[in-house]
Every structure is written in C-alpha cells, then in structure tokens.
Amino acid sequence: MSISTIIRGDAERRQSRRAQKSRMKKVSRDEARERKRYRRMGFSNPANPSRSVLLTVLSALMAVYCLFPLVWLLINVTKTQGDFVTTFGLGFGSTFALFDNIARVFQYQDGIFFRWFVNTILYVVAGAGGATLLAILGGYGLSKFRFPGRKAVFAVVIGAISVPGIALAVPQFLLFAKLGLTNTPWSMIIPSLISPFGLYLMWIFSDQAVPDELLEAARMDGASEFRTFFTISLPLLAPGIVTTALFTIVATWNNYFLPLIMLKDSDWYPLTIGLNQWNKQASTAGGEAIQNLVVTGSLITIIPLILAFLLLQRYWQSGLAAGAVKE
C-alpha cells in the first residue's frame, strides 16, 4: 500500500481494494486453520499464536473503561432537554428524541452548527494536512541528512513545547493581531501547522522505513534529492504518514484553547468552541438551556474522527502487513 495507490484511478483502486480484501480474508482463514493445526500438534507458532481467553477478558476490562463514558453519550443523545435533566443518566428518557435532536442541532441558530462543521473541516484539511506535510519533510530531513544545526533542531523543538501554551497565547495573539490575522482562519491554520510529535514520528519512521542503501543507489543514478524523496522514500513512508496524519487531525479537530483566544466571530468557530458556547448558554441570563443539543452535537463531532480513524487504520494496517517497515 502506498501513496501511488491512492493517486491511481478510481476503478483501478476499487479493484485493487477488492483484491486486497479477498487476499486478507484468505490470509486470516489460513491463519485460523494453521492455529487449529498447531494446537492439535501441541506446538505454538509465535507469529500466529492461539487466542487466549484470559488475556481477552483482561483487555475487555480496559475496553469497558474506555468505552463506558461513550455509552453514556449514546444514551443521552436520545433524550429531550426535559428528560436530560430529570431522568437517570444511564437510563433512557420517556421519549426517543434522537432524530429530533439531530435535526434541531442543524437548525438551531439558523444552522450555525453546519457552518462550524465546515470550518472545522477547513482547519483540519489545511492545518493538519499542512502539519503532516511539514512533519514528513522535516522528519525525513532530520533522519537522512547531516546538516549544520541538525542537533539544535530537536533540542529547540522540545524546549519550545515545554513553554506553557497558555502563557504563550498572549504573545502569540499579539503577534497575530499585529499581522492582522486574528479572527481569520489563518490564526487557526498557521499554529496548527506545527506538530512536534508528528515531526518526531516521521523522524523515527524515516530511520526505520527508508534504508540508506536505497537512497545511496538512487543518488548514484544521479537522481535529485527531491526526486529520490518522492519516488523512492514517500511510498515507503506511507504507514508513518497515515499515523502522523491521524494524530495531527485529532489534535486540530479537538483544539480548544487556540480558537478561544484567536477567534471572536462565531462564523469562524470550530465545533469545540461552538459547543462550549452552547453549553454555557444554560447559565446565561436570557439564554435557553440546550444541553440535549450539546450532547448530540458532541456525538456528531466525534463521529467523523472515529470514521477517519477506522478508514485510516486500514491503510495503516495494510501498510504494516505489506511489510513496508523493517522486514
């Protein structure tokens, strides 16, 4: 699985995906058969061990811990405002208002929720996309080149992110204000372009996934560094890129403090700030309590991330399965 696959034609992509799927199915069937065979023989293959019930149960405890609050969310999106404040949190309300809630979320205040949703997508595409790109280039550069100042980069990055973000917000805001960027999408996008963790991840991945010998061979053929990067390294880095993209997307999607400082116009709000504003409305004189919409909006906010994770995970997983990494 590589970037080139994604660029290829639609029909071809679908076909290859189907082929991939049936291949995966066959592999897992074979593996299951193999496990059975090995069990009979009393032998365990460490690359394909038999399943353990005890370990599954222990992990299930962890899964319950992780999913439990989300169950609360799923139950409460089905309640009306009245039921929300009066009925037991883990029980259903007297009416099933899920669809009504969803409709109202998108209608409330002239459908501003949809606007927030679009904004968030804009910030994610431009911000997280850009952050991933910068991290790929930077991480690759740090891994594959020895240049003056290289050692300083990591120290400076770690040092800079140790400065409490809250206190940086004021100088950051003043700087952006002087450039006339506050209250515009740029004030959200530009700071999102930096993902120190993404840089680190791409550095490590480049170390592991791109053999120096391969680059050396390409150089000997007279290819330029960028050509080498795009044709040889990038496909090898695909699994790392997807992982980095995943982290930057989540970070941008859930960013709270930055937009709180930078944006005032609710037309530019991302979902997190918009939801918080709705949540606070309950305690504002003249405001209407709409916690049911806050909860429903929260669920709608999480769903795209979960979908992105599930979809990206397939690339990520097949990338690993294809053995692109160190095998």
Partner: peptide
C-alpha cells in the same frame, strides 16, 4: 480501536461525561 477512541473525544465533552 476501543482503547484509542477516547483520544478522539474533545476535553469539553469528556469532562461532561
């Protein structure tokens, strides 16, 4: 996926829950 899901939840929502 189950272990990773909470990471996708914004702090405002997690605190609500």
């Amino acid at each position: 996926i189950a272990t990773f899901l909470p990471y996708a939840v914004p702090a405002v929502v997690s605190t609500l829950m």
